[in-house]
Amino acid sequence: VSKLITEALSVSQERVGMSLVALKKALAAAGYDVEKNNSRIKLSLKSLVNKGILVQTRGTGASGSFKLS
């Protein structure tokens, strides 16, 4: 899941990052079952932020906008 998230964010052209909703849409378009794996998406977002791979530009927790650091 982390690999899919970083790939989706690297393609994004948004300056402020990608919102959680837009990220879920991009994952669904890539063929990932978002409804079934919603908790996995949130956990991997939090772990990527803690590792310093992603930066959360808006919001708290697993909601808001994210971009690559």
Rank of each mutant, 00 (worst) to 15 (best):
S2M: 04
S2D: 15
K3G: 02
K3R: 05
K3L: 02
I5A: 01
T6K: 14
T6G: 01
E7L: 00
L9N: 00
L9V: 05
V11G: 09
Q13A: 05
E14F: 00
E14H: 04
R15W: 01
R15H: 11
V16F: 06
V16L: 11
G17K: 15
G17W: 02
M18G: 08
M18F: 02
M18C: 08
M18V: 04
M18I: 04
S19I: 10
V21H: 14
V21S: 13
L23E: 02
L23Y: 00
L23W: 02
K24Q: 05
K24S: 01
K25H: 04
A26K: 14
A26C: 08
A28S: 09
A29I: 05
A29R: 13
A29H: 06
G31E: 00
G31R: 05
G31A: 06
G31P: 03
Y32H: 11
Y32N: 09
D33Y: 15
D33V: 13
D33R: 13
D33A: 14
V34S: 06
E35M: 08
K36F: 01
N37R: 14
N37I: 15
N37F: 07
N38M: 14
N38D: 01
S39A: 13
S39P: 03
S39E: 15
R40N: 07
R40V: 03
I41F: 11
I41N: 02
K42L: 14
K42H: 08
S44A: 15
S44W: 03
L45K: 00
L45C: 03
S47E: 15
S47Q: 13
L48I: 02
L48R: 00
V49Y: 08
V49P: 03
N50S: 14
N50T: 13
K51P: 04
G52R: 03
I53R: 09
I53A: 09
L54N: 05
V55G: 14
V55A: 09
T57A: 13
T57N: 11
T57I: 08
R58W: 08
R58Q: 14
R58F: 09
R58K: 15
G59F: 10
G61S: 11
G61F: 07
A62V: 10
A62L: 05
S63Q: 14
S63D: 13
S65Y: 12
S65H: 10
F66P: 09
F66M: 07
F66H: 05
K67R: 12
K67Y: 07
S69H: 02
S69R: 08
